[in-house]
């Protein structure tokens, strides 16, 4: 599971029908220390994350398992980070 910062939302009226009802959020990749990286992705939201929140997401097939309708997605937010403590 990797960390990211929710920076926005993606709305698309014309899309593959299987993506109907899937909330798509715009994420910016970060390090666990919070330092932002120059890497962005779109992930489906399964925990009600909002802009500005630090989250962690999962990729590949496990992403579609995170959303109950099992849509064809390759990244899904599965948790909102409350706190992290670590030493490099």
């Amino acid at each position: 599971m990797k960390p990211a910062l929710v920076i926005g939302r993606v709305v698309a009226s014309v899309k593959d029908p299987s993506l109907k009802g899937v909330k798509l959020l715009l994420l910016r990749c970060i390090r666990w220390s919070g330092e932002t990286l120059n890497d962005y992705l779109i992930a489906a939201d399964s925990v009600g994350a909002g802009a500005g929140e630090k989250v962690f997401y999962v990729e590949a097939r496990d992403a579609s398992i995170a959303v109950h309708t099992n849509p064809p997605i390759d990244a899904a937010i599965i948790g909102i980070i409350d706190g992290v403590d670590f030493e490099e």
């Binding site: 666990w32 399964s46 925990v47 009600g48 962690f56 995170a66 599965i78 948790g79 909102i80 980070i81 409350d82 706190g83 992290v84 403590d85 670590f86 030493e87 490099e88």
Partner: peptide, 14 residues
């Protein structure tokens, strides 16, 4: 193992 993560709002299986 270098640390821990806390998250109350997360996918049920976690």
């Amino acid at each position: 193992v270098i640390g821990r993560v806390w998250a109350t709002q997360k996918t049920p299986s976690l």
